[in-house]
Structure formats: structure tokens, C-alpha cells
Amino acid sequence: MHKDTMNILVSIGGGPEAYEALAFAALLSRRQCTDTSLLTVREPDSGLHSGGLELRVAREQMLGWGLELPGLKRLKKARDIFAELGEIPGQESVQLEHRAISGDPAGEYVVSYNTPCGGTVALHLRSGTDIPGVIAEQCDIEDVDIAIVGAPGENPTGFKKLVSATPMAYRIAQRLPCPIIIARRLKTEGAILAVLDGSGLAAGCLPRLAKIARACGIPLSVASTAGMEVIEKARRALPLDSPPIDETFEVENSAEAVLAAAEDYTLVALPAPVGKLRGSMVEKVMENAPISVMIIR
């Protein structure tokens, strides 16, 4: 990992939204020279139960993609998309390795590629039954700055919501220690809206959002649920080379008001510390927004 590089992790769970978000991750890779991790987590099976596939077999499968395992098929598709987007210029991997992880007998298998700018794209195959926990652990291991996970295809409502399990993407969002984007038709055009609540958490993430906006070549607007002085204070803390903020305005501190304000944007970002998401206004926005939502941490 490059010390000063933004580290991005994309969780590949098989749904279409995660694959669509790869264009966004590839643009950040190209413009910010990020180190990007593409991760899939497999349920343990007989092939991984005794400590994982042998490294020789893993090399054949992860480089040749000959084994029709769901996790490898997902990684192959993600790798092919990244290659089509120009961020994996050749088919030769830089390195394949097996990494031991405490408490996980299977460890993880990693295939790494160099990107044209000098960053890396690493494909990670892990196994586990606690998928949110595995992804959270991976974010810690890789010192991830932003994680991306595909939104569920449909949110249950009414009685169905009461009896249905929480969608995996939302369970992941509740557990991750780093900022996370719940991707819904995540595009590389449009605009970003940051919603500040007066906390240092929200203001501290504004420089990162400005960097993302610059990389994508899209405007960044800032709204506040705690008065315009919050925006001015956050603006003064931005680095001198940050792009100008497009629009600033106040918004009521309610999910309905934030959803209405964000309807013309590609991505809306709101603060929610780890453990404070469940039952919050931010959770309501995450579940009901027709666009991508970034949870700031």
C-alpha cells in the first residue's frame, strides 16, 4: 500500500449495483492513483474447511479461473470489468499470495495487479459466515478510506419488512469502521451533496469528498442541518487546492427533507458513527434514497 494513497475497497456480493459501481472505483483509481481492493466472501465449504485451497491450486484457479466457484466467478467478472475500464492493462498478475489471518483457518487468497498510474488492484478471496464482520476486518487490515457495497435490489416495506432479515448491504453498513458508499446506480457524473450536522466527523470528511468530486469532475454542494455557520467553518478548513463548493444551503434535520434535497444528486453523504446507524435519520435516508448514499465515519 502507498502511504499517501487513498485505499478503496469494493465488496463484490453478486448483485448488479456493486458491478456498476466499479466504473466509479476505476475513475478514482485513474485520477487519484488509488490502491483498490475487490473483495468477495464465500461461505465456508469442504474446499476451504481444512484451511483453504492449496496455494498451487489457488494459483491455477485465481489466475486461470477454471473452477466454477461462486466467489471466483464474481471476482473474475469484477476483474474483467476493471480491465475493460483500463485499470488492469495486462493479464499478468504482479503477485499471488496466501495470507494467514488470526481466527480464520482459511486465511485469504490475494491476486494483485499494477494499474497504469502505479497503484494496485488486488483481488481478495475470503471465507466466513459473518460476512459483515469479515468485510469490517478487511477494512482494518487494508486501512481502507472508503468502502463500496451494492445496495439491495428492493427494500421490504410494511409487514414484510418486520419479518424479513435486514439486507446484507445494510448489515455491512452498520458494522464497517470506515466511510461506506451504499451504491445505487453510482455514476461518475452528476453531483455530490454533503450534509453536515455540526459534528467534527462530518466536517472532517469534507476534504475527502472534495477530492472525490475533483477526481470525478463533478460539483460538490454542502447542506447543513445545524445552520450556515457550520458550512462556513467546514469550508475554511478545506485545503487551498480544493475545488470550489457549488451550492450551500440549510436543510431540515429529517429524512424526508434530506431525501427531497438530494433528489437531483448522484451521491449524498451523511455522518453516522459506528453503532449509531440503527433507527437514525441516516438509516432512513440509506433505505429510501433512490441514489447512492455515503455514510461518513
Rank of each mutant, 00 (worst) to 15 (best):
L48Q: 09
H49Y: 13
H49Q: 13
H49M: 13
S50F: 13
S50Q: 10
S50L: 12
S50T: 06
G52R: 03
L53F: 06
L55W: 02
L55P: 01
A58R: 03
R59Y: 11
Q61W: 11
M62C: 02
G66I: 06
E68V: 07
E68Q: 09
L69K: 00
G71K: 01
L72V: 08
K73D: 02
K73F: 06
R74N: 10
L75S: 00
K76V: 05
R79L: 07
A83Y: 00
G86W: 08
G86D: 07
E87L: 11
E87D: 13
P89G: 09
P89D: 09
G90Q: 12
Q91R: 10
Q91H: 04
E92W: 01
S93V: 01
Q95L: 14
H98Q: 12
A100R: 14
A100T: 13
S102C: 00
G103K: 11
D104A: 10
A106E: 13
G107S: 03
Y109K: 00
V110H: 03
V110R: 15
V110Q: 11
V110A: 04
V111E: 07
C117S: 11
G118T: 04
G119N: 00
G119S: 04
V121T: 14
L123C: 05
H124Y: 12
R126I: 02
R126N: 05
R126K: 12
G128A: 05
G128D: 08
T129R: 15
T129I: 02
P132I: 07
P132R: 03
P132Q: 00
V134T: 12
A136H: 05
Q138D: 10
C139N: 12
I141K: 11
I141M: 09
E142G: 05
E142R: 14
E142L: 12
D145E: 06
D145V: 04
I146P: 07
I146V: 15
I148W: 01
I148L: 15
V149N: 02
G150H: 08
A151L: 01
A151E: 05
G153T: 11
G153D: 13
E154V: 10
P156R: 00
T157Y: 09
G158S: 12
F159H: 10
F159R: 14
F159M: 15
K161D: 14
K161R: 15
L162V: 10
L162H: 03
L162K: 12
V163F: 15
S164Y: 04
A165Q: 15
A165H: 14
A165N: 14
